[in-house]
Design a protein around this nucleic acid. Structure first.
Lengths: 225, 225
DNA sequence: ACCTGAACACCGTTCAAGT
DNA sequence: ACCTGAACACCGTTCAAGT
């Protein structure tokens, strides 16, 4: 074997907090939060699990940090549009980010140490509503109902054991098999007449609820308390 | 010491699936899902972790079963009321059950093997909407927006790192401390002028969004598609 | 029939050690 | 300065063994 002047620099890209965080995010995207362990993350980066502790304090700090990466992907509400357009665009941007990073849904509003992207996002949404003439109580109402709907929709979409009409047919079969035929007639009708239809996608329901809520907010914002 | 004719029957209440499930639920209620391990559950019941496998197939089967216990606590929509009253009462009953069993929120709609209480609940809700004259597509819209809102609200309430106005003050302090003063002016105003007020409780927001959604559904149900 | 003990392949994290 | 190996106190689950 020829003697090398320098050792092969194959894996010698040095670790950095940024590289740790981006790799952690992609591991969670691919396999869910359960797959994101210090051991698998180290493996993905070509180091032992303990090497990570030079760049993050502990796993909670890691989660704090990658949640802020998700917030950073969400577009702030545009300032050159009416509040309804701005809130609709923001809602769609949040939903899209949550569907790209499903593991993040239950964690987004849970942080005791929110990052700057998180805080800036909340600040911009409140600013948009106040700027449109909402008083503080009405802004709180609006933010609450919008985010509850967006997070709940993302949670349901992410946890439902089916997505398309074909998958519904498959899953419904095994779900109803242990029970007497027609024990749940309304549910059966819902499945066969609606959810099993070829074009069915639960995700399509998002727009209906979003517009309903935006319309309701406009009505209520026009009336004084 | 006196010799006993029979050994002390202190811990000899025999295990049963029902006792395992109810104890599992109370362990999760007290300490969250992370606290519910085969080892802690066994300890609570006075047996080793392996004794549980005689009554449940594995941990997923255990979770399936206790989720159905949560569904069993939810009142079905009353059949002697108009749909709006029935759906409002059902929504409040779901919310109450989820706040009693916070660990259950992300799991309610995730089961590949739903139990009878789960299926009966879905059947009754769809039946209520169809009975009120909703067509199938409109019933799907209504169910989607209502449950997304209820689950999202419960998720947010359960994960928010504060509840009362006093807790907000405490948490906001540590949240904003790392950042320049007044970096987030709208958020700061929201906190000081609204969330830190003595009577504040995020949970009070539930009714506003629920009524907004029910009103919007009534409007849309009256118009033909 | 019902429960146990030891074992296996995993966790997050600490601590002393290597280069 | 940066990374590692061994260890500790945990997981869910299997399997052979005890009564």
């Amino acid at each position: 074997m020829a003697t090398e002047a320098t050792p092969p620099p194959v894996r010698r890209v040095p670790l950095s907090r940024d590289r740790v965080l981006r790799t952690a995010m992609s591991v969670a995207d691919a396999g869910g939060l359960d797959m994101l362990t210090m051991r698998t993350l180290g493996q993905e980066l070509g180091v032992g699990p303990m090497a990570l502790y030079r760049h993050i304090a502990n796993k909670d700090d890691l989660v704090d940090a990658i949640i802020d990466l998700v917030f950073a992907e969400i577009g702030l509400p545009p300032t050159d549009a009416d509040w309804m357009t701005a809130m609709r665009e923001r809602a769609i941007s949040v939903r899209d980010a949550l569907l790209r990073h499903r593991w993040a849904v239950p964690l987004m509003e849970s942080r005791r140490h929110p990052g700057p992207a998180n805080l800036q996002h909340h600040d911009a949404v409140i600013g948009c509503l106040l700027g449109a003439g909402f008083d503080m109580a009405m802004a709180a109402h609006a933010y609450s109902v919008l985010d509850a709907y967006i997070y709940g929709f993302a949670l349901t979409k992410m946890t439902l054991p089916f997505e398309t009409g074909e998958e519904v047919a498959e899953v419904a079969q095994t779900m109803l098999q242990p029970f007497p035929l027609n024990a749940y007639p309304n549910l059966a009708a819902f499945i066969t007449e609606h959810a099993m239809k070829p074009g069915y996608d639960y995700g399509d329901e998002f727009a209906f609820g979003l517009d309903l809520i935006l319309d309701g907010l406009e009505e209520r914002a026009r009336q004084p308390a």
